[in-house]
């Protein structure tokens, strides 16, 4: 276990203040229930999501470098980002600043212009919410804290495509036992199984949800999501657990759209892994923001006496 993650800088990112608010709420609640401390970055900025890099990738690197500089200034050596997009961009900035002199030069120039010290690679480690819980509390630590087991709940864990790609920006992954796998990630499976859930084998756990073209090509996104949902159901899942607000919102929205536009109804429920862990830790549904989800899991949760 990693004691240094017990108190970390927290970068929620824009999505967790909007459509992914339930993820922010449940992440903070789970952290508190587990005795972990999150300190939100002062005056953080958007990471540029998936858009800015199309205009100027080095500017995107600077956006994340600024957030890392804030974490360093606040005295932290670790920043935790629950959103896959933010996590990915922080990791990519770290990689680019270590390997691309052009990115370093732009970062130095823009930091000076903005009036703050430029971030230098290697000062702040970026982790995901999954790393945070898995490496601080672990499966055994979770098992002893579970008050309301997820026993019997069949879950497909969906990681999305940005949690593990591109592999070279995640040097800590694929290091054997105890590390995360880029080919077949398992940290969410491990944590939810420790909380009692039955995690089904789900072959599309890292497949694309079409999030990047949900506005430009909604029909393709709807078909991709529908296939994710029907495959989860074919695997026997009642719930798809998510760890990214973009994936989560996409699954929820296109589940509704698939029924309206394509006439294809699916019944699998979509919940953040932090909501599921929170309820297993004895927190109420309201406390972990289930009421904020579009996917109405209340009947299932009532039947399972969760939350």
């Amino acid at each position: 276990m990693t004691e240094s993650y017990r108190r970390v800088a927290y970068y929620p990112g824009c999505a967790l203040e909007g459509t992914g608010h339930a993820y922010d709420r449940s992440t903070r609640a789970v952290g508190k229930a587990l005795g972990l401390e999150l300190v939100e970055l002062d005056n953080w900025n958007c990471c540029g999501a998936m858009e800015v890099k199309n205009v100027d990738p080095k500017l995107q690197t600077y956006l994340s470098a600024r957030n890392l500089a804030i974490a360093e200034k606040m005295g932290f050596s670790t920043v935790m980002a629950p959103c896959n997009g933010c996590y990915h961009n922080l990791k990519k900035a770290e990689y680019d600043l270590a390997n691309d002199p052009g990115s370093t030069a732009v970062n130095e120039r823009l930091s000076a212009k903005a009036g703050h010290a430029a971030y230098r690679s290697g000062k702040v480690a970026t982790i995901h919410a999954l790393d945070w819980i898995k490496q601080t509390i672990g499966e055994e630590g979770l098992k002893v804290r579970v008050k309301n087991s997820l026993a019997g709940l069949r879950i497909a864990n969906y990681y999305g495509c940005m949690y593990t790609r591109p592999r070279h920006i995640f040097p800590e992954k694929d290091k054997g036992t105890g590390s995360e796998s880029t080919a077949k990630p398992h940290f969410m499976d491990d944590l939810l199984a420790a909380a009692g859930a039955e995690c089904v084998e789900y072959p599309l756990k890292t497949a694309c949800c079409g999030g990047a073209h949900t506005l430009s090509d909604s029909d393709t996104s709807t078909k991709l999501v529908l296939n994710l949902l029907t495959t989860a159901e074919a695997c026997g899942a009642e719930v798809i657990a998510t760890e990214c607000p973009t994936c989560h919102t996409g699954l929820e929205m296109h589940q509704v759209r698939a029924e309206k536009v394509l006439g294809k109804k699916t019944s699998v429920k979509i919940l953040y892994f932090t909501q599921l862990l929170g309820m297993a830790l004895g927190l109420s549904r309201r406390r972990v923001g289930v009421q904020e989800n579009l996917s109405d899991a209340s009947a299932l949760l009532t039947a399972r006496r969760l939350g």
Partner: peptide, 24 residues
């Protein structure tokens, strides 16, 4: 039988993904 079905669903996802890539 289930493996064939899941394999077909994976193939469908691949097809849809590339559909999107080509369109974009």
């Amino acid at each position: 039988g289930r493996r064939v079905r899941l394999g077909a669903m994976i193939a469908r996802h691949l097809m849809l993904f590339i559909d999107g890539k080509l369109e974009i």
